[in-house]
Design a protein around this nucleic acid. Structure first.
Lengths: 351, 351
DNA sequence: TTCCGCAATGATAGCGCTATCATGTCGTCA
DNA sequence: TGACGACATGATAGCGCTATCATTGCGGAA
């Protein structure tokens, strides 16, 4: 064994190239077979007889051989990589989804290559171009608001594509998510039914998903003639807990008799709660608060906060499952999956 | 142009291999130069005359050429990938650090390949093996508690290695972080100075960094003869806001006269605050709370919460900077960087 | 018996790029 | 004036793997 390695080192040095690590040829020589047989034994053991398989396994272990994914990708025109594009890393929503994706992959051969689009369609397009250039096994992208060019790029990529986080028609290929419009509508209807009349909307960042929640909110209020543009307070600033308080103050300055707020997300809702506590505004009696996403902290806050629970982790799991099914040639039940959401009613909206 | 593409398509179909996308040879033919010149023009334009560069740029745009990273990696024995290993994706701490890493990379050629070790040294070892097999340009790993084997693997990898999040001696290569022991000590000393005497420690997950914070806490209390093992309440469960309340209840059951808690992290601190509000325990008069990390919500909570601000984002930036400097052959000021931390004193510890 | 099909293995030829060395063309300095 | 080096470009030969086709041997159908 030592001799094998030594002589290989020797020849590497002579050629002045190569990684210095054992190659499939080294394994083949040691096992007394052709390289291609080693390749087969590694990729699909059923193609090789049991005896040779044993020989090869021994050689692999003895040399500590690990296939070079780059060479494999080049030769087979397909990299064992899934490109994942998210608009933000700070947003816990995407952290949960990523976790679902990683968990779904388990310890299989597929790796994740992640890109952060920073909510920019231009950046998304650049990243997709870059990712596709390595011919990934699949792509998972956030949202359905790609530019026309981006859509074309994805359509012509010959790998499974999953759009995640939203629900809608006409996906590029497959889609897993839920309806943000409905989420906003259900939350707002709940506030209406609970007896609130001056229901504000507080939103940060206002990306496409936030816009759809806002549209759902508006639609619910308009249906009962309670809509008033002054009720909406938004900013393009990224969401933070500390922004919630500021936005509530802004909202109250415009609408003194505000009696409820539907927040774009839980961070803002939490900020609103703290601001109410500080300003002595009783929740839920003088002010109701409803969040979105239902982070863990919502149920232990005091008072506990109503929110829309979203299936973030499950979206990641499901997206990966669809990719794996497709790559394995298994049939996909439906290319469009609505994972829904759930209204969690808590103290903050129970007057 | 159309002809070029058409004829290329033709020859691809004949050979039945290839990706169907333009290659460097196509660009070379169109620009009337050798392939290697295109390669040079793309990687280091200063190696090629201005005229040829212009020709090549035109051809690249005309064909929509994008280099194949796999082929490049194979030929140059170096992938444009940085392997990043984090123990958790849910933990906002690592999300911030990842953001720093991505931002530090900007839109350069380097891509991130991330692995989630789930706080398991075994898993970390497996992932490092897997990552190294593609000869990454660099590796960034969390913590300094690798197994002996993992350390050896990293030491023999001929690429820059940065260990992040902690401060300590003898890094594998480079290291960026801060001292968790000191953080725990400073926080605890602050509580002592503020006049608290029965200071508890509340911790979840209890990974190596949590252990070091605990050690700092203990050392501070022992120095003034205030240490008591009953003051420590920990669990191996992953941290969540909702866990903070439970742990506080456990702590109070053991130590009825508890008058302060130093929490392992801000999530727990927030949970403790909510539990105090719910139970009618006045903060900071009957109970002081100190967190760790200083998330944005700490300063707007009511009362605002004291915490140790940690340079999470900066760690990511700095780690990438060191990698880039090293790859560019620039000198590194110091291979070990202590980014420190800052005690943020707020209402929750001001009796 | 003959032939066909299938399973197991091998030989060959790339995948698309870059390391390495070779070649040609200047300007420059003794 | 000629030799030398610096610079720009090209030819060649892989990097480590797999697609593709070829070969071999064997059992069963005709």
């Amino acid at each position: 064994m030592t001799d094998d390695i030594a002589s290989r080192e020797q020849s590497r040095k002579a050629s002045r190239r190569g990684s210095g690590r054992p190659t499939i040829a080294d394994v083949a020589k040691l096992a007394g077979v052709a390289a291609i047989t080693v390749s087969r034994a590694l990729r699909d053991p059923s193609l090789v007889s049991a005896e040779l398989r044993a020989e090869i396994d021994t050689a692999v272990i003895q040399l500590g051989y690990a296939p070079d994914p780059n060479a494999r990708a080049l030769a087979s025109a397909r990299a064992d990589v899934i490109g994942v594009l998210v608009p933000s890393l700070t947003n816990i929503v995407f952290a949960d989804t990523l976790r679902g994706i990683y968990d779904g992959l388990g310890d299989g051969p597929l790796q994740i290559q992640m890109g952060n689009t920073h909510y920019s369609p231009r950046e998304e397009e650049r990243l997709i171009r870059m990712f596709l250039s390595q011919r990934p096994s699949a792509m998972i992208v956030s949202g359905i608001d790609q530019t026309e060019t981006t859509r074309k790029l994805l359509e012509s990529a010959d790998c499974p594509i999953v759009q995640i986080m939203e629900y809608g028609d006409g996906p590029v290929d497959m889609l897993v998510g839920f309806s943000h419009f409905d989420g906003g509508k259900v939350a707002t209807n709940h506030l209406i039914e609970a007896g609130y009349r001056r229901i504000g909307f507080i939103g940060a960042r206002m990306d496409p998903r936030s816009q759809r929640r806002l549209a759902g909110y508006r639609s619910a209020l308009e249906a009962v003639q309670l809509f008033d543009p002054k009720l909406i307070t938004t900013t393009l600033t990224p969401s933070r807990v500390s922004l919630g308080g500021q936005l509530l103050a802004d909202a109250l300055a415009k609408v003194a008799d505000l009696d409820a707020v539907f927040c774009n997300n839980d961070d803002l809702a939490m900020g609103v709660l703290f601001e109410c506590q500080r300003a002595g505004i009783a929740v839920p009696h003088r002010m109701a608060i409803c969040g979105f996403n239902d982070l863990d902290m919502m149920q232990v806050a005091y008072p506990s906060l109503t929110s829309i629970r979203t299936p973030r982790y499950e979206i990641g799991r499901q997206a990966v499952q669809m990719v794996l099914d497709r790559l394995a040639g298994r049939p996909i039940a439906s290319p469009i999956v609505d994972l829904g959401f759930e209204l969690k009613i808590r103290e903050s909206t129970m007057r």
